[in-house]
Design a protein around this nucleic acid. Sequence first.
DNA 1: CAATGTGAACAGTTTCACAGCT
DNA 2: AGCTGTGAAACTGTTCACATTG
Lengths: 243, 243
Amino acid sequence: MIDRSARRKQIPEPTIARLPIYQRITTELLRGGQTTVSSDQLGRLAGVTAAKVRKDLSSIGSLGTRGSGYDAAALVAGIAATMGAGETWRVAIVGVGNLGRALINTRGFLTRSYNLAALIDSSPDLIGTTVAGVAVQGVEEAAASLDEPIDIGILTLPAHAAQTAADQLIGLGAHSILNFAPAVLSCPPEVRVRYVDLSIELQVLSHYARSAEAGRGGLLSSVGIQPTTAPGSADARGAARRS
Amino acid sequence: MIDRSARRKQIPEPTIARLPIYQRITTELLRGGQTTVSSDQLGRLAGVTAAKVRKDLSSIGSLGTRGSGYDAAALVAGIAATMGAGETWRVAIVGVGNLGRALINTRGFLTRSYNLAALIDSSPDLIGTTVAGVAVQGVEEAAASLDEPIDIGILTLPAHAAQTAADQLIGLGAHSILNFAPAVLSCPPEVRVRYVDLSIELQVLSHYARSAEAGRGGLLSSVGIQPTTAPGSADARGAARRS
DNA sequence: CAATGTGAACAGTTTCACAGCT
DNA sequence: AGCTGTGAAACTGTTCACATTG
C-alpha cells in the first residue's frame, strides 16, 4: 500500500462550502476580462477576510503566484476539479410538489453537471405527468427502470414521508442526500446528508430580529466591540467596509 | 440601568439552529402522549449527542429535572420563548418566480408567526396578480402601501438583482434577510443575512460523492476512526445506532 | 515590493466526566 | 438510581503575523 489519500489532509467542510463562492466570483471577473485575482479582492467580494481566502485556496494546492495573485482561469479550474465538476451526477428527486417543481425549474440549480435521472412521487395524480421533460414515476417503477445507480437524492416532500423516501433513495444507490423535509434522517454513516430546513432559517432570523428589537432600547449588538468586522454570523457577511 | 441583557451569555448560533429541531421533536412526542423527555432520547431523535442536547438546553435556562428529564410542555414553551415565537413577524418576499411561489405555498414555512406583508416583483406580468391572497406589487408601490416596517425580507430572485433588492428591503425596515439568490450581499452589520444557496448544497454533495467514489477502491471515509459516531457532517446525522 | 502560503495564537464548539439534585 | 447541569479538556476553524517568493 503506497501513499494513497494523497489529498493533502482533507479539506474542512466550511472551506468546501466557500469554494463555489470563490469560483462563481472569479468566473464573473474572468467574464469581465480580468485574468488575475488577489485574495484581498476575492475576500472583499465574497464577504470574508483575505486570510481566510488564502487558507481556503491553499488547501486545494498552491494555485497563486506571490506578488501578483491567483490566475483566474486556473483558479476556476482548480476549484472545479476539487468540487467534482466535470463529472455528471445522476440525481433523483422525491416529491414533485411546489418545492420540487420549483427546484427543477430554477435556473442554476440543476446545471450540466446534474442529470435528472428520476422524478419520484407517490401521488397517482402526478405519476405519468411530465416535468421538465422527465416523467414522474412511483418508486417501484423508478427502481425498475433505472439501469444505473443514482448518486444524489433530493427530498422535497412532507416530513412524515422523508425517512421512507431516504431509505428508498439509498436503495437506488444514493450516497448523498439533500433533504428539504423538516425531519432528521437516520442513515448509514457512509451516506452524506445535508439539511436545508427553511422553517429553521426563518426561526433563526426571528430570534435575532427579537434581539435587535430588544436592542432598540438598549445595546445594539454590533457597536464598537470589534474595530474591524462585526462579530456577525458564521458565514459570509457584508463585505466592502473600507478599501 | 439595572441588569439588562439578562440572557445568560448569548446563545451560540449552532445551538440556536438546533433548538427548533428539539422543539419539533418534543412537540411530536407530546402529541404522542409523552410528558417528559430525556436528553438521551432527544439526542437520539435529533441525531446529536445527549451531552450536546444538555448544553444546548442549559443555555436557555434550567428547564430539566434531574433524575427524570425535561418536561415536554415546558421545553416546547421555553424554546418558543427564546426563538421569538409568539410574536408575529412581518415578512416581505422579493421575487415571485418558481421558488418564491413554492415557498409561499409550502406548508410549514410561513406559519402563524409570519405575516406576509408584501410580495414584490419587478415583472409587469406578475404585478397585479395575487398569490396566496396577497397582491404582487412593484417596489415603489409596496413602499407606499406599507404603513409599518417589515421585519424579515426573503430574496428569491436571480443573482444580478439581489443586491438592489436587499437594499430596498433594508429600506423597508428589514433587519433580517433570507437570501436564496446565489450572490453575496453587502449589508450594514446590524442586518442579519442568512444564505440558502441551493447550487452550493449540490456542489458540496458532489464533492463528497466524488470522494466516496474514489473510496470505493480504497478507504471508506468512515471506517474505524471513531468507535462511536462517524466524523460526519457538521450537523445532525443518522442517529439511533445502539441503545 | 506586493501578495501568497503557513506556523502559531486565538476563538468558538463539542465532548468528556462527574458533581449535584430529585 | 437516574439524569441534568457544567467546568475542563479536546478539537476544529479563524485570525494574525511574517517569512518567502516571483
